[in-house]
Every structure is written in C-alpha cells, then in structure tokens.
C-alpha cells in the first residue's frame, strides 16, 4: 500500500493580500464558483454585444498542461480566449496578466484573481526565475496558461514580435503550445478607449498544437520557440 501523499495549497501560509498577488495562488470551491459565474457572465455579454465566432476548437487539448499563445491588442483578449475554451477545461486555465496593471491595487488584485483567475507577471521581474516558477506550475499541477508573448497590448493593432519568455516556459517539456489569432478585439476595445464598443465582429482562430519537447532549454531554443509560435499566429492571421 502506498503512503498517503498530502499536497497542501502552494500558497498556504501567505496572508490574503499576498495570496492574491502570488503566482502560487490556488483556488478552492468558492473561487471556482466565482470564476464560473464570471466567465458565464462574460460569455453571455460578449455573445449579446459582439459578433463572436470561434474556429478550430478541435485543436484544443483534452487535458492540461498546455499554453494558449495569442496576439494581444485589447483587454478583451484574455476574456475572449477563456470563453473559447470548453467550460470543463476552463477551471484549470490561468490568464497571465501584467502585475503592474492588473495587480497594482488590492481592488485590482481581487478582480484579477477572484474573477479572472489571472496570475501576475511583473514586467520588471520577468526573468528566468519567474519563468521557472510558471514552468514548474504548468507541469506539476498540471494547468493551462493564456499567454500574450508580445509582452504588452499593441497600440496600433499590428502584431509585434514574440518575446522568448514563452520559450523559457515550454522548452523541453511535453506541454503543447496552441497558437491563437484574435481578430476584431482591437476594434471592439482599443487601448485608447475607456469602454468596449458594441457590435464588432470578433473572430478567434485556433491553430494546431505545436510541441517543443525536443527543443533545448537555452537562449537559442527559446528564440526558436518564440519564432515558430509567432509564425503560426501570423499564418492564422493571414488565413482569414
């Protein structure tokens, strides 16, 4: 008979304020119900106010670990991507959000963590150590991440080059990266606007999974991964 193995919450012992802002945060039953309610409300809102279409859902894996990597030009992107994931899989997916925007104040942290289930990425501290933490969480839990490898929202709607941080997380692992191209979110809620515009056509195009188990976990490998995923997203963009 095997010994019992206890696995306490990763964030056990952290005060509430730190828990919300921690990359180790784990949610329980109440958190899951809150996230479900939030995503259901967002799904209903987007389907009512925008013309949302999703292509290629068959490319999504049946279980974690995985990463959804997409172009980024609007605050709607993470919401639209999460809605594209089947509800049965959504509970284990964390959007990776800019810590200095979404976790800046306690109120922001409560919203980002409590509603969106986002994990913070501090742009001043997104080096190898932070990526290693994400990598171990992705594989050990296992879970899914929604990542925007450009690092920030595009201010013009044009896609920028992907940064190698994505490679640091997946190089040499079994976690597939699913390239996703988002059309229309920039028009629906551009960075300059205070609130979303109604009636915009939003399209989510999900591509076949890319695997990087054989890619070395070094600078060259990270660049290669970032380049391949960027090309895949650009190909989806061109496919429209």
């Amino acid at each position: 008979m095997d010994d019992w193995r206890y696995k306490p919450a990763r964030d056990l012992g952290l005060p509430l304020g730190q828990r919300l802002r921690s990359i180790k945060r784990e949610t329980g039953m109440v958190g899951r119900l809150t996230h479900r309610a939030w995503w259901a409300a967002m799904s209903a809102y987007l389907r009512c106010t925008q013309k949302l279409t999703i292509h290629g859902q068959e490319h999504l894996p049946a279980s974690p670990p995985f990463i959804l990597a997409a172009n980024h030009s609007s605050h709607l992107d993470a919401v639209v991507l999460a809605i594209a994931i089947p509800p049965a899989l959504r509970w284990c997916v964390f959007p990776i959000a800019a810590g200095d925007t979404f976790f800046e104040t306690p109120a922001h942290s409560v919203f980002a963590a409590g509603a969106m289930n986002a994990l913070p990425m501090w742009r001043k501290n997104c080096g190898r150590h932070a990526m290693e933490e994400l990598r171990s969480r992705l594989l050990d839990e296992p879970c899914g991440f929604i990542l925007f490898p450009e690092g920030t929202r595009s201010r013009s709607g044009e896609m920028a080059a992907f940064r190698p941080g994505l490679g640091m997380i997946v190089a040499g692992t079994v976690a597939p990266v699913i390239p996703v191209c988002l059309h229309g979110t920039f028009d629906a809620w551009p960075p300059q606007a205070r609130r979303p515009r109604r009636g915009q056509r939003i399209e989510v195009r999900i591509g076949p999974a890319l695997e990087f188990a054989g890619v070395a976990n070094d600078r060259e490998g990270w660049q290669r991964i970032a380049g391949e995923v960027e090309s895949a997203v650009r190909a989806l963009k061109a496919h429209r």
Partner: peptide, 21 residues
Amino acid sequence: YREFARATGAFRFPITSFVVV
C-alpha cells in the same frame, strides 16, 4: 474546513468538498 482542506490538499476534490460543506 477551508483551512483544513487547503492544508491537506482536500480542496482539490471539489465534489468531496461540496458534500462536506
């Protein structure tokens, strides 16, 4: 129960947690 579940890892079993609550 929430503290116990987070410490033992029982919170990862949502159905059991729901029945306990």
